[in-house]
Computed example of a mutant assay.
Amino acid sequence: MKLILIPVMAALIGLSACGDDGLADQLTRKEAKDTVRPVLAKRFPGVPLEPATDCVIDNASAVEILQLARAGVTGLGPEETQLVIEIATRPDTVQCLLKDGLAPFLLKKA
């Protein structure tokens, strides 16, 4: 199954340069999110996964999103795990997490 997905992902990655918010961009981001989610769950337990995943993807460069999307097809390695952690700990990502990721979670408990 993964052998079939590799050419498909390669085509999508190539098409993702065609424009933001297009089908290829959406599929690439979805694949990248599928890669990010388990890393966040393991490394940052208790963080609301969907908002945190969105913050990581929103603060990743296009090249980083493509790298994470590729890892979703070829397999998550230490380099991609480190990349997720690096993006998650950037100041802009932390601000996003505080604003969009953790605030709604904290307000529900109050």
Rank of each mutant, 00 (worst) to 15 (best):
A62V: 05
V94N: 02
P38D: 02
P51K: 02
T74D: 08
I13Y: 00
P38I: 03
I13V: 13
P51Y: 06
R37G: 04
G72W: 02
L98G: 15
D20W: 04
I13T: 06
A71R: 01
L83I: 08
T81P: 03
E64P: 05
M9E: 13
I57E: 07
G22V: 03
V39T: 13
D58F: 02
P78C: 00
I85C: 02
L97V: 03
A62T: 12
Q26V: 13
L15F: 12
P7I: 11
P104K: 12
A11R: 07
V94M: 03
L12G: 02
A110E: 09
L49T: 06
P91F: 09
T35F: 10
E50C: 00
D58P: 01
A11I: 06
I57F: 00
L3A: 15
L102N: 00
L66A: 12
A60M: 09
D25W: 01
A62R: 12
M1T: 11
A11H: 09
K99H: 11
T93L: 09
S16H: 02
L27F: 13
P51W: 07
V36N: 10
K99D: 13
I87H: 07
G14M: 09
A41I: 03
E80R: 05
T53Y: 01
L106K: 10
L12M: 15
V94S: 04
P91C: 04
K108H: 11
L97E: 05
I65W: 00
C55D: 05
I87G: 04
R70G: 14
D20K: 14
V36E: 08
R70E: 15
T93D: 06
G14H: 07
P91E: 08
R90K: 14
G19I: 12
G46Q: 05
L68I: 07
